[in-house]
Write a protein that binds this DNA or RNA. Structure first.
Length: 814
RNA sequence: GCGAGGAUGGCGGAACUGGUAGACGCGCCAGAUUUAGGAUCUGGUGGGGUGACCCGUGGGGGUUCGAGUCCCCCUCCUCGCACCA
């Protein structure tokens, strides 16, 4: 409301444009260099700049972090609040395949649209720190990190069966395959062996697991990561195969204590020993079964087919504990990828084995008391029976005892296995980071020297995958064929590219020092800013992104680049916003809300307030455009407390009354606490109540409270707050104003409302002095005619009086 | 099947360590004002009786003077994992 406005109407478009321009021009939200200040690093999961632009889910978490960033500035913190682009990825490449437009062009266009949209919402990012994972000055360091991994032996090539998607002409990570189909596009995926780059994340499994304990993360996210890592302790046990001195069957079990209960063995259909141990009589049946299993898709094997199938090999193994003969079966309920691909079956104490034994009439033996194994497997604890030297021990002791015995006798070892597999790190795509690797004629691989980074992505004519599994890069001869700067030999570049996860694994570090050309990040700056204090993003990243980023962070910790073991101190997942119909928003359903339209109609401040007011940040909740009326109305009411319809000030110069002062300090107290606890919906409702009090009061905003009120409002509705502050004559921005102090003397009420109950039912409410003791309370209540009459009807057997809270008469009828 | 989280008015949601259930907002109803503005203001709005009475936080038990909150059993919903030995 700088001078010249004709009316006092709240014109959100003009107000918001004005302050956004000023923040940009003055670099208001640049993080400061002053390292004597306490720091706060608040991070959003940076978006993939898709062609669709922002959806309303983005501003949900971005507004939350923005409120925190602004709040922390008021609280005296040096705040780092950056934004960037996770811009490598399939959609741009797929668009290029269709149209021939270079992904870099599409990406640049999408980024500027995203940037415009984010800026229109007034987020207080430090735009000088913007990063873009597809920028060579950024992916230079992604490549550099890969070199560190490579040099530490954490990157290796392997010929392994991979998820080959014929439709897309590429290989997918396990995580990108859902029910046998590609996560993007839903195309069928088959298994096929191929030479791939792998990262040895399994070497960090224990640290990734242990360090979870100290993180301020939602328990369910930690649990998901624990599950994903899937660490099991137990033993590997060798079973000699009867009549075959050259073959032993090694199994992994978490229940070595039940070894005496093993009644048969099972190997996976793909197990390498099958061919050599199968008897002639069974050879044909086993071959048929294996063929059948191979033909089944993952979907059939895991989902559709629950009933157990299998076939005997005819071979037998010997139980090392008691010398019993155990038939060896082939069955697809044992998987080749976990443990050793072979198990000892203990149907008495394992549900799957029990089901299998029942189906095929195999013996079931009880070795742990507590259940009835003839009916169902007993998997609980108990005392060992029928188990020789283990008899009488409890399960945990028996596990130890058996493992020790196996080791003494040379029949086995204690062992730990994880579900976590090494990370398939190469993609046969164009739009990704090239590997800084050179292939020599002799088959050896060397690295591109650090000084020669980045290895730039060359321009190509065609983006089509070759269909053979090679990347489109393989066709760019003048790029592929190069000279090794070290040996001078003619070499070929690696043509695979890195997965999209690569760039997002470390971007939070680059924000700290985005222009540094000498280092990934300056060590002093890293020490100051890390760890990230608050990280908010979608729960779809609860496992993969967060696990990969933690892995790289730990490697960088070992390399000495970072000073913290963990990157993200506090994590939060925002909930999903559903469409107005209560269904997930999707183009096909036509229930998608476009943020641009909302901003145009109601303004960014009303939009921000609405998204925060919908409910708890972490809850899933449906969108309701009519709800914007509420927050928009609230802002108009705030406006009216300062400005009348003709643009004249209605700010009240008189002393505010006690009631207004009390209301203000109660509000400030609640907003301070709720904002600290990220309970934004209740903070907003507190401010609404206060504004309602003043509106009813009808005298305008008291001048003595005006600026403090605006500081309190600023994190939530920054444009309106700054505008009204300027209207008051404020020359300096609110952005760095200190947070107002709560005057606690106003929080204490002289009188309190105390409900009076008879047998737990409220009969009246008394206004009592705040300090009234139980006797005084009772006396006052008995003086009430209504109460006295009710008490007459029976005998008072007990009086519960909690000062300031409740008074309850327990009355026994006569 | 396993793990985690939920269930409160027509709707989104409040409710601190058990202490007046339904704050705040949407929507709706009535009125005022101005009138063509996606306005504003005031009052009302859980259900039933329609006077100060009863019933109400998914269902059933329990603990307690008192339960949305604590305990036990059950139903349903959401998310994740899914034959991991």
């Amino acid at each position: 409301m700088t001078q010249g406005d004709k009316t006092g109407t709240y014109d959100h478009a003009a107000v918001e444009a004005r302050w956004q321009a000023r923040w940009m021009a003055e670099k208001t939200f640049a993080a400061k260099d002053d390292r004597s200040l306490p720091k706060y690093y608040v991070l959003d999961m940076f978006p993939y700049p898709s062609g669709d632009g922002l959806h309303v889910g983005h501003p949900l978490s971005y507004t939350a972090t923005d409120i925190v960033a602004r709040f922390k500035r008021h609280r005296g913190f040096n705040v780092l609040h950056p934004m960037g682009w996770d811009a490598f990825g399939l959609p741009a490449e797929q668009y290029a395949l269709k149209t021939g437009v270079h992904p870099a062009k599409t990406t640049a266009k999408n980024i500027s649209n995203f940037r415009r949209q984010l800026q229109s919402l007034g987020f207080s990012y430090d735009w000088d720190r913007e990063v873009d994972t597809t920028d060579p000055s950024y992916y230079r360091w992604t490549q550099w990190i890969f070199l560190q991994l490579y040099e530490r032996g954490l990157a290796y090539q392997a010929e392994i069966p991979v998820n080959w998607c014929p439709e897309m002409g590429t290989v997918l990570a396990n995580e990108e395959v859902i029910d046998g189909k590609s996560e993007v596009g839903g195309f069928p995926v088959v298994r096929r062996p191929m030479k791939q780059w792998m990262l040895k994340i399994t070497a960090y499994a224990d640290r990734l697991l242990e360090d979870l304990d100290d993180l301020d993360w939602p328990e369910h996210v930690k649990d998901m990561q624990r599950n994903w890592i899937g660490r099991s302790t137990g033993a590997e046990i060798d079973f000699p195969v009867e009549g075959r001195d050259d073959v032993t069957l090694r199994v992994f079990t978490t229940r070595p204590d039940t070894l005496f209960g093993a009644t048969y063995m099972v190997v996976a259909p793909e197990h390498p020993a099958v061919d050599s141990i199968v008897t002639d009589a069974q050879r044909e049946a086993v071959a048929a079964y294996r063929e059948q299993a191979a033909a089944k898709s993952d979907l059939e094997r895991t989902q559709l087919q629950r009933e157990k199938t299998g076939v005997a090999t005819g071979a037998h193994a010997t139980n090392p504990a008691n010398g019993e003969r155990l038939p060896i079966w082939v069955a697809d309920y044992v998987m080749t990828g976990y443990g050793t691909g072979a198990i000892m079956a203990v149907p008495g104490h394992d549900e799957r084995d029990h089901e299998f034994a029942t189906t095929f009439g195999l013996p079931i033996r009880e070795v742990v008391s507590g259940g009835d194994p003839s009916q169902e497997a007993w998997t609980g604890d108990g005392t060992l029976v029928n188990s020789g030297f283990l008899d009488g021990l409890e399960v945990p002791a028996a596990k130890q005892r058996m493992t020790a015995w196996l080791e003494e006798q040379g029949h086995g070892v204690a062992a730990v296995h994880t579900k976590l597999r090494d990370w398939l790190f190469s993609r046969q795509r164009y739009w990704g980071e090239p590997f800084p690797l050179l292939h020599h004629d002799d088959g050896s691989v060397s690295t591109v020297p650090e000084a020669d980074l980045p290895v730039r992505l060359p321009d190509v004519e065609r983006y089509q995958p070759s269909g053979t599994g090679e990347s489109p890069l393989a066709t760019v001869t003048e790029w592929v064929e190069t000279t090794d700067p070290v040996s001078g030999e003619a070499v070929r570049r690696e043509t695979h590219t890195m997965p999209q996860w690569a760039g997002s694994c470390w971007y939070y570090l680059r924000y700290i020092d985005p222009q540094n050309e000498e280092r990934l990040v300056d060590p002093e700056l890293e020490k100051y800013w890390m760890p990230v204090d608050l990280y908010i993003g979608g729960s779809e990243h609860a496992v993969l992104h967060l696990l990969y980023a933690r892995f790289w962070h730990k490697v960088l910790y070992d390399v000495g680049v970072v000073s913290t073991k963990e990157p993200f101190r506090q994590l939060l997942n925002q909930g999903m916003i559903l469409g107005e119909d209560g269904e997930k928003m999707s183009k096909s359903r036509g229930n998608v809300i476009n943020p641009d339209e909302i901003v145009e109609r109601f303004g960014a401040d009303a939009f921000r307030l609405y998204e925060m007011f919908m409910g708890p940040l972490t809850a899933t909740k449906p969108w309701q455009t009519s709800g914007l009326n509420g927050t928009h109305r609230f802002l108009k009411r705030v406006w009216r407390l300062f400005v009348d319809q003709d643009g004249r000030s209605v700010v009240d110069d008189g002393e505010p009354g006690d009631e207004v002062l009390r209301a203000f300090h109660v509000t400030l107290d609640r907003v301070t606490e709720d904002t600290s606890e990220l309970s934004f919906n209740t903070a907003i409702s507190a401010m609404m109540e206060f504004v309602n009090v003043l509106t009813r009061d009808g005298r305008g905003m008291p001048r003595s409270l005006a600026r403090e009120f605006l500081v309190m409002l600023e994190p939530y509705a920054p444009h309106v707050a700054e505008e009204l502050n300027a209207f008051l004559g404020g020359e300096t921005l609110l952005a760095w104003e200190p947070w107002p102090q709560v005057d606690a003397s106003f929080l204490e009420e002289d009188t309190v409302d105390v409900p009076v109950q008879i047998n737990g039912k409220v009969r009246t409410v008394l206004k009592l002095p705040a300090g009234a003791d139980p006797a005084a309370m009772e006396q006052r209540a008995r003086a009430e005619t209504g109460i006295a009459a009710l008490l007459e009807q029976g005998e008072v057997v007990k009086v519960i009086a909690v000062p300031g809270r409740i008074l309850n008469f327990v009355v026994k009828p006569r």
